[in-house]
Design a protein around this nucleic acid. Sequence first.
DNA 1: GATGAATGAGTGTTCATTCAT
DNA 2: TATGAATGAACACTCATTCAT
Lengths: 204, 204, 204, 204
Amino acid sequence: MSAQETKEKILKISLTLFSRRGYDAVSVRDICGRVPIKESTMYYYFRGKREILQVLLRRFEEKAEGLMNRMERELAAPWQPGTGFGDGVTRGFFEEYLMDEFCNSILRLLRMERENSREFEKIYDEWMFERPLHFQQKIFSALAERGLFGQADCAELAVEYYAHVFLYTERWLMCGELTEEKKERFRREAGKQIARFFRDKGVV
Amino acid sequence: MSAQETKEKILKISLTLFSRRGYDAVSVRDICGRVPIKESTMYYYFRGKREILQVLLRRFEEKAEGLMNRMERELAAPWQPGTGFGDGVTRGFFEEYLMDEFCNSILRLLRMERENSREFEKIYDEWMFERPLHFQQKIFSALAERGLFGQADCAELAVEYYAHVFLYTERWLMCGELTEEKKERFRREAGKQIARFFRDKGVV
Amino acid sequence: MSAQETKEKILKISLTLFSRRGYDAVSVRDICGRVPIKESTMYYYFRGKREILQVLLRRFEEKAEGLMNRMERELAAPWQPGTGFGDGVTRGFFEEYLMDEFCNSILRLLRMERENSREFEKIYDEWMFERPLHFQQKIFSALAERGLFGQADCAELAVEYYAHVFLYTERWLMCGELTEEKKERFRREAGKQIARFFRDKGVV
Amino acid sequence: MSAQETKEKILKISLTLFSRRGYDAVSVRDICGRVPIKESTMYYYFRGKREILQVLLRRFEEKAEGLMNRMERELAAPWQPGTGFGDGVTRGFFEEYLMDEFCNSILRLLRMERENSREFEKIYDEWMFERPLHFQQKIFSALAERGLFGQADCAELAVEYYAHVFLYTERWLMCGELTEEKKERFRREAGKQIARFFRDKGVV
DNA sequence: GATGAATGAGTGTTCATTCAT
DNA sequence: TATGAATGAACACTCATTCAT
């Protein structure tokens, strides 16, 4: 195994364990035993347990930032007739963010660690609430501009919409193993609520 | 301090710490240092750290069970004209459950620990999702019976309704200290969404 | 072995090892292995390795302070004819300070640790140079007052006198094991120099 | 940087750190981080950390031996009228030995390490006491031969003389950083004592 | 010449728990 | 009731060293 691979494996396994049991409850022994390397080898790649966490968080913020930007650009592009406008970005947000193994794990980890640290509380709040809500609001604004949606307070609509997404996210995506079965259940139930939401708002 | 008082103090302090930092991150030293008693004294009252947690959980289940039963009985009682039907139970659910210090702490603890244990995952799911949803469905059924609410799929309505409650619960009641300010914010924002919900459904 | 005895034994063994090898080079394992207790037991008596050192230092400062005070009082007392004035205090300084096992060990430890810490440098300087020189100056003043010694700059005389004491202290008392043989050699050689010193100064 | 330069840099930095903190307290990481090279590179130049120390010691012994021999030769040379006989060698002993950065560092290192090792204890004793005393005795013999000094037990005189040098050496040259200020203070205070010494002995 | 990758032994320290008193 | 004294197992981390490249 090459050096880069070893480092990646440490990161991958650490995230898996951190997201399941929380940062503190995972020991360096646990991580290294699964790579497998000796504990002292870990200190060749990282300055300490803490640094693993920091690298993971930095990567997450970059990835999430990139994803959000990409989706905003897609939103600005002209509407492709024949597809529900905004379907693509919604699917992107679900599949590449909430259900993406890496992002999902980080969000779970943050949800646990926010209790111990103001910094993590802030990051969790940003990426679980602020950004998604803000993004959803933009979608509704874009829909309204194109006349697909009645003019309304987009911020409030975003909250109403996101509440359903969040409930199902918490229920199916953020606990236990992220199985295909759970993902499917999330898609189905959240999809149903979303459909109802648009029907209620008079969108065809 | 009497024996009973000591035992209660151990439980109270343990819950406070567990709900903030998680079960594993709290040491017997932490707990006993705050009571204050010597660590070995704790083993006179409890078989071990684990038992403290079990006693707390048992109490919670009894208390929550009792609360739900009491509210269901209230729901069955004839409607007091002049008050919004169901207002009392809703207020009860908010004030005596989600915002009650004991229940709130347990729910936070469960939310953390469910990652480590199937058992806790089950309990959390039951008391954060299953029971509240089931209970909310009963409210809507009761409202429909009394003609205050159009006939509809009460289960689906319950989900739609509870999604908002849950979002605000997660955002304001389940992180950081449970201050009066946060409680007030929850009451206000959740209340607004609930009002909108009933308006949309044609309930006066 | 009683608790108090255990604590004292930890202190005694720690000092022995610290004074030989230096604080850092002595491990908690080393100390506990010789007591003998398990390492975790040490943490019942002391908050950490550092605290052992602090307790030892505090005791030394108290003891040395007490000794200096006692000797100053003796100096103020009327001269017992038939004995060399000041002989008692000089003997006290040698036997109960420089050659006392506890004080000797602490001084050796301080001599090593002063390289690592300004605090220790200060304490060493105080108890190896400042205080002894100041004390010796007082002896010469007292001798001069009683007419046993020509008036002179007592501070300079103290330095001249103490230089010999210090040389022999460093050479025989502050390295390797403090054997009776070395002590005897110190007494003899330092005594000779002291005698010569007084002879040179015209004291009978 | 050439291989030879790298090796010298390793030695120089090692000595600086060893003399400040002691051999054990300095890690290979510390040394290599300051060179800078990778730890593994060090093992190309030296068989291990221990060998660095041995090379330094060997060099010191050669250098000190050379210095002593040179000074003895100077002593045997005919007296240059107009200068205090022996001034040159005394100055040489101070400036090129006690205050020379390399020799000073080695002596400090030896002073620390002699506690851990018989071998170092011997070397320290030799180069801090035996040789200087022996050398000083030769100076006095030479002075006496030339009639500049009353016949006396040169060995005893040497001890008396060296005691002062040693006290000031320990106090100003062997702790903390070896600044110009400290050197100057040493020259001044030791010089004063030496002058007094010769005055007392009737040397003009 | 120099290093990237790895390791076994050891560091000080915290942990939940036991048990005689 | 309560505790003083003790412990084995685990913790994150540092160390000098090795060896293939």
